[in-house]
Simulated assay, not measured.
Amino acid sequence: MNNSNSQNQRIAKMTFSSVYPMYLAKVEKKGRTKEELHQVLTWLTGFNNKKLNELMKENVTFETFFRQASINPNAHLITGIICGYRVEEIKDSLTQQVRYLDKLVDELAKGRKMEKILRSA
Rank of each mutant, 00 (worst) to 15 (best):
I90Q: 06
S17K: 13
I117G: 06
D106G: 05
T64S: 06
R99K: 13
K116G: 03
M1S: 13
A109S: 15
E115R: 13
K13N: 15
L41F: 08
M114H: 06
L52D: 06
H76Q: 10
N74R: 08
N72F: 02
N3W: 03
F66L: 12
S17M: 04
G111Q: 03
T15M: 04
E58M: 10
N2W: 02
K57D: 14
N5H: 07
S17N: 15
I11T: 07
K50V: 02
Y100P: 08
K116W: 01
K50F: 01
K51F: 01
A69H: 10
D106Y: 02
S4W: 02
F66V: 07
T45H: 04
V19E: 04
L118Y: 01
A12T: 06
K26M: 12
R86V: 06
F66R: 13
M14V: 05
S120H: 08
Q39N: 11
Y23V: 03
L24S: 10
R67A: 12
G80S: 09
Y20N: 11
L55M: 15
V105H: 01
F65S: 12
E107W: 02
T64R: 10
Q68W: 00
R32Q: 15
R10V: 10
R32E: 06
E89S: 11
R86I: 03
V98P: 02
D92T: 03
W43S: 15
I78M: 02
K110N: 13
S18A: 14
L55R: 13
T61H: 03
K103V: 00
M14A: 07
S70A: 12
N49A: 14
E107S: 11
K51V: 15
Q9N: 12
D106R: 06
N48C: 08
Q39P: 07
N49M: 07
K91T: 07
K26R: 15
N3H: 11
N59Y: 02
E115D: 12
L37K: 03
N8V: 08
T79C: 05
N49G: 12
N48Y: 03
E35T: 15
E54N: 14
N53P: 04
K30P: 00
S120I: 06
D92F: 02
S6P: 04
S18M: 07
E36R: 08
N48M: 07
W43D: 13
Q39F: 02
L77T: 13
K29N: 15
L24K: 15
F47A: 11
G80Y: 00
G46R: 11
E36M: 05
L24H: 09
Y85H: 13
Q68K: 15
Q68V: 05
T61L: 01
N5M: 04
I82S: 10
T95V: 05
K113A: 14
Y23A: 06
L44F: 01
M56E: 15
Q96D: 03
L118F: 02
H76E: 11
S70H: 14
I11C: 05
K34I: 11
T79D: 07
K50I: 11
T15C: 09
L104E: 02
G84A: 10
C83D: 14
I90H: 04
V60T: 09
N72E: 03
K13L: 09
E63K: 14
K91A: 08
V87N: 05
N5F: 01
V27P: 10
K113W: 00
G84Y: 01
R86H: 09
Y100R: 13
F66D: 12
N59A: 11
Q97E: 10
L77V: 11
